Simulated scan of single mutants.
Amino acid sequence: MKSKGISLFISNRILQHLAFWVLSIYIIGSYFSISNELKTIDFIYSLFFHIPLLLLVYVNLRYHIPKFLLKQRYIIYLLLSIFNLATAFFLHQVLFDVIIPILPTDFYMVSFTDASVLIAIFIIYLVLTTLLKLSKSWYELQQLEKERLSLELNSLKMQINPHFLFNSLNSMYSLARKKSDKAPDAILRLSNLMRYMIYEVSEEVPISKEIDAIQDYLDLQKLRLEEDANITFTVEGATEHQMIAPLLFFPIIENSFKHGLKGDKGTNFVRIMIKNTNSELTFHVTNNKGTTDHSEEGKYGGIGLANVKKRLQLIYGDSAHMEVNDAKDSFDVSIKIKWND
């Protein structure tokens, strides 16, 4: 029940604002109280004191921040903030010097706050609420990015290249027709790969599972390739317990098979290496290019590599680095991910 109330408070913007202002009224009333005990007049004074504060804060939150600060129009935002502060100060003076004295009330209230103290309070509220707004915007942005990453991962799960599946099934059919002993193993590897991609991946997976999936993918690719194609996959270091974002390297590996392996007989290769240490993980793929069709010229980077780079930035930030080397006869991609202590 307690956690449900906390969740309601976190998700309800009105409750958050109400709680902030109730606390603020109490603090201001206590700060300006003329005695050690809070009295009704202290709260009434605090309520009037908050009228220009409310104007100051909500003009800033509703208009100045979204229309100027978040759009990086900093000079205009600064000038408007100064004007906003001046307006709040003027309203405070009018309230306590003009309006309150003519109100039919038994209480006598005057503003005994020095101008410098009053401006300082207004600036504190302006800066504090701006920081709260920016932090909330940042949090909401992170949540959106997290949801986008989740959608992207679900998309990757279903993104097994149709040509790859078609070629794999054709190769299996050919093996079955020949009654080859390799057919059951090929079917098992395809089943394992699809199970992993569709059901087993989550936000993070052990590197060892990702390696097993890569190995299944490579073995299936070999079924359709010439025997002289040189495909190697080496793994160094312990990978059982370290976790990684799933399907991170698959677009790069798929890219190497899609655009590579097009040279003369005996020159085709794809070399993949994963090295893991206590401080970082290194992933490297290189493939020959050979003859490129006109329709593929300039596409070695591809959307897949751009997506991988963006995922790296979103998930690992500055801890990850991706380097692409598009040479005349080969294409190399290297990724380094530093593990946080």
Results as ranks from 00 to 15, higher is better:
Val59Asp: 03
Ala115Val: 06
Phe43Asp: 07
Val98Glu: 14
Ile65Pro: 00
Ser46Trp: 01
Ala88Val: 03
Ile119Arg: 00
Asn84Gln: 06
Tyr77Leu: 01
Leu132His: 13
Tyr125Pro: 00
Gln93Gly: 02
Asp42Gln: 06
Lys133Trp: 08
Leu70Asn: 14
Ala86Gln: 05
Tyr63Lys: 08
Ile75Thr: 07
Ile65Asp: 05
Ser111Ile: 09
Ser111Gln: 03
Lys136Tyr: 08
Leu53His: 05
Leu47Thr: 15
Pro66Ala: 10
Asn84Met: 06
Val110Trp: 08
Ile119Ser: 01
Leu118His: 04
Ile119Cys: 03
Leu85Asn: 04
Ile41Arg: 06
Ile76Pro: 01
Thr105Gly: 11
Asp106Trp: 08
Thr113Ile: 12
Leu132Ser: 15
Leu91Ser: 07
Phe43His: 09
Leu91Ile: 15
Leu78Thr: 13
Ile124Lys: 05
Ile119Asn: 00
Tyr45His: 08
Leu134Cys: 13
Ile65Tyr: 03
Ile102Leu: 09
Leu47Ile: 14
His50Asn: 14
Leu54Val: 12
Ser81His: 02
Tyr125Ser: 00
Tyr74Asn: 15
Ser116Glu: 09
Val57Asp: 02
Phe90Gln: 05
Ser116Thr: 05
Thr87Asn: 09
Asn60Trp: 00
Leu54His: 11
Ala115Asn: 04
Phe83Asn: 05
Pro52Asn: 12
Leu91Ala: 11
Asn84Pro: 00
Ser116Trp: 03
Leu38Pro: 03
Phe43Tyr: 15
Gln143Lys: 07
Tyr58Glu: 09
Gln143Thr: 09
His92Trp: 00
Ile100Lys: 11
Ile65Asn: 04
Val117Glu: 13
His92Thr: 09
Thr40Pro: 00
His50Ser: 13
Arg73Thr: 04
Pro52Asp: 10
Gln93Trp: 09
Lys71Thr: 14
Leu118Gln: 02
Tyr63Asn: 13
Phe89Glu: 00
Leu38Asn: 07
Phe68Asn: 09
Leu54Gln: 12
His92Cys: 04
Leu79Ser: 11
Leu53Thr: 03
Leu70His: 12
Leu78Arg: 12
Ile100Phe: 09
Pro52Ala: 14
Leu132Gly: 15
Leu38Ala: 06
Leu95His: 03
Lys39Asp: 10
Ser81Pro: 00
Val94Glu: 06
Ile75Trp: 15
Asn84His: 04
Phe68Ala: 08
Phe48Ser: 06
Pro104Ala: 06
Phe43Glu: 02
Asp42Met: 05
Ile44Asp: 03
His92Leu: 03
Tyr139Arg: 05
Leu134Asn: 04
Leu79Pro: 01
Phe43Ile: 11
Ile51Pro: 07
Ala88Cys: 10
Ile99Leu: 10
Gln142Pro: 06
Ser135Cys: 12
Leu141Ser: 13
Leu118Asp: 01
Tyr45Glu: 04
Ile65Cys: 11
Leu85Val: 10
Pro104Lys: 01
Leu80Ile: 07
Ile99Gln: 10
Leu61Val: 10
Leu54Arg: 04
Leu78Asp: 12
Ile76Thr: 13
Ser46Cys: 04
Val127Ser: 07
Gln93Leu: 07
Pro104Cys: 10
Pro66Glu: 10
Leu85Trp: 06
Thr113Pro: 00
Leu38Phe: 09
Lys71Ile: 00
